[in-house]
Amino acid sequence: MKLLKKEFRLCMHPTGFFMPLFSILVLVPGYPYGVCCFYTTLAIFFICLTARENHDAAYTLTLPVSRNDAAFARILLCVCLEAAQLVIMALFIPVKNALGAMPNPAGLDAGPALIGEGFLIYTIFNIIFFPCYFRDINKPGKAFLFSSTAVFLWLVLEIIATYTVPFVRDVLDAPDPAKAGPQVLFVLVSMALFALGTWYSTVRSGKAFSKVDLSL
């Protein structure tokens, strides 16, 4: 908890506070809503970038903490932002539908399945970004390039799937309240995958960070 508090007070980048608010874009018709998650991953990249510029590792490693804990705290901070983004999105989805739902031609409609999609995007991001970042904390750009490329490929596949894959087209991308049950199940499965993927990422990140030589 002390390390998480330190992350919030010393490492948090201003974009970390407002990028999750971009979830409000679910109110915009015909928008690829999965991109809202990308803005939060961009904030995570900025946090890691400014941590490098502020010599955060040099400070953290003089504290009585292990490298494993330091890596865990950074990932936990990022998971908090990801969760905040999805919560805000979940709050605006009913608003969007109250204002008049219409089919989204650019990916999933604003419905429960969109939250599941968000969990899957963050799972992909976390599995790729953090282990790569903690192998060399001086190169967050490299980790972000790999992870955001994977996220964008996933977004393209998702948009294509809303037209071509029957389950996605007819169940996940359907505004029909009768499909809410399977969509909620999809959210729960995605959430479980997110938890598993992020745990795996944390373990790999901790191992990578423990081995690396830090030129401070």
Partner: peptide
């Protein structure tokens, strides 16, 4: 080594003290 150049010393101290 110059860490957190834009944070007040008070903030850095408070965080450090907690450990």
């Amino acid at each position: 080594m110059t860490y957190y150049t834009r944070k007040k010393l008070k903030t850095i101290t408070e965080v450090t003290r907690s450990f």
